[in-house]
Design a protein around this nucleic acid. Structure first.
Length: 470
DNA sequence: TTTTGAGTTGTTCGA
DNA sequence: GTCGAACAACTCAAA
């Protein structure tokens, strides 16, 4: 039998994998491949490093199954054509993606493969529900979260697919490049070693984390997930973003806990559906990545100056507002940020500092190891006010009030802001080791005064909204 | 077609 | 200290 090419992309797992399951079920050899193409090349520094770590974990998982992951570099279509020619494969399988660039690439590849008499098939699994299967009663897509939640909350999610016991290898493996030669982490510089201490890489560790979470902090998820000093969130976004775990795995785990009366379970399920919402919006309005979802915002006078001192202060954790700075430093050190921090820093950048959400979105795209195009774009536009189901104009987060509500015991700030502490914790000091030397920051400096105070920024932002002249 | 109620995550002010 | 109202006007979803 001719081999099947299993093209891995952002689905770095063997369990609950529709394409792999189908490839194995065909009965012939399976050739697993990962391609370093333009889309990989265009990733930001941290997401690219994290992808490389995930690919390395997938390599090991495949080797444990007595097969290999073939690595190739180049335009995906040329690479796949070459592999077909080398191996005599008659089919290429992959898991579907939903961002416009991937879809364009995949459509082109599917057409070219089919035109050559090959089987080219894409499978679902990155989402619980395909975007085109969730509609309002009049046939449109949901632009508000809650109705979408109500329409899908009781839907059946198919049972999980078990990991194939064996993945039949080809008689001889095609040549593979070396992962190290790709240098996927080279843009990370000083931060790489530090971020890697916080990352949870690979499908096995993702599964272990899901188990740990559902047995542990899920119980109080509804309360603690909002408090950044608590270990209250699932921290699974990193794994979801690369498909090391599937939303269906999370869904089934959450449903089982819901049936047991676990108070946190429903809120967790709702968060998984937020991810769906973001991807459905991306599918229906791909411009959400680059343009104001509500065009009325096109004339809002945001600054787009990346070299402004305000923007530098924001990204380097030096605004003088502790909640903002703690969150931005957490981002730089760990490659993630607590959800509450994301809301606060986004509100501060787009409102107090009157800076365009695109700059924040791009910085997150450089720094997040859980970077996800759909959630990132939706979140930024939500915070800025230009997006679907967005925050009303008057919902300006006050970083000082937020402290009283969500970090009154200083735990979060102590973890990330070294200045002024007798014995700063390692995490707070690591920030100064991780950042570029050119930023010239030291934990021995005095903590900065606010560049734009909570009060002043709020009033300024509200005045722009008020005169509605934008 | 029209109407109705609702809309993730907040803050401030005044009683 | 606590609590409810106000903060625009609009869009969305469903009846």
């Amino acid at each position: 039998m001719s081999p099947t090419i299993m093209w891995f992309r952002r689905d770095l797992r063997l369990q609950d994998h529709a394409a792999l399951t189908a490839a194995v079920a065909k009965g012939g050899p399976v050739i697993a491949v990962f391609i370093f193409d333009e889309l990989v090349k265009s990733l930001g520094a941290a997401p690219k490093w994290r992808l490389g770590a995930g690919v390395a974990a997938l390599q090991l998982a495949l080797e444990a199954k007595s097969t290999r992951l073939i690595l190739r570099r180049g335009p995906a279509l040329s690479v796949l054509r070459a592999l077909v020619a080398e191996t005599g494969a008659d089919a290429v399988y992959w898991q579907r993606a939903y961002d416009p660039k991937s879809q364009l690439r995949d459509t082109e590849i599917k057409e070219a493969m089919v035109a050559n008499g090959l089987e080219a098939k894409s499978f679902k699994g990155h989402l619980l529900f395909e975007p085109w299967t969730v509609q309002t009663k009049v046939g449109g897509f949901f632009k508000v979260y809650t109705p979408l939640w109500n329409s899908v909350r009781n839907r059946d999610v198919p049972d999980l697919l078990v990991e194939p016991a064996k993945i039949p290898p080809p008689d001889s493996f095609p040549i593979s490049e070396n992962l190290e030669d790709w240098q996927l982490g080279h843009q990370m510089q000083r931060g790489r070693k530090i971020v890697s201490q916080y990352a949870r890489v690979g499908a096995a560790r993702a599964q272990a984390r899901l188990d740990e979470f559902t047995q542990g902090s899920l119980q109080n998820y509804n309360i603690n997930r909002d408090i950044p000093g608590e270990d209250g969130t699932s921290k699974l976004a990193e794994n979801l973003s690369l498909g090391e775990i599937t939303p269906a795995q999370c869904w089934h785990a959450g449903r089982a806990e819901l049936d047991r009366g676990n108070a946190g379970a429903e809120v967790f399920l709702k968060e998984i559906v937020w991810r769906e919402f973001a991807y459905h919006l991306l599918h229906h309005t791909p411009d959400i990545l680059v343009k104001n979802w509500k065009p009325a915002w096109d004339s809002f006078p945001w600054s787009e100056d990346e070299s402004s001192s305000n923007f530098f202060a924001w990204k380097s954790g030096g605004t003088g507002l502790e909640f903002v700075d703690a969150a931005m430093r957490e981002l730089y050190v760990t490659g993630t940020m607590h959800n509450r921090g994301r809301m606060i820093v986004a509100s501060y950048l787009t409102k107090h500092l009157m800076t365009h959400w695109r700059l924040g979105q791009a910085w997150f795209g450089q720094c997040l190891i859980d970077w996800d195009p759909a959630s990132n774009a939706m979140g930024w536009q939500w915070a800025a006010g230009s997006g679907p189901d967005a925050a009303p104009y008057f919902r300006v987060f006050n970083p000082e009030t937020q402290i009283e509500k969500f970090d009154s015991d200083r735990r979060y700030r102590r973890s990330w802001i070294a200045e002024g502490q007798q014995n700063p914790p390692l995490s707070a000091l690591q920030f100064f080791d991780a950042i570029p030397a050119s930023w010239s920051l030291s934990h021995k400096n005095n903590y900065p005064k606010p560049i734009v105070s909570a009060k002043e920024g709020r009033e300024k932002a509200l005045s722009y909204y008020k005169n509605r002249d934008f």
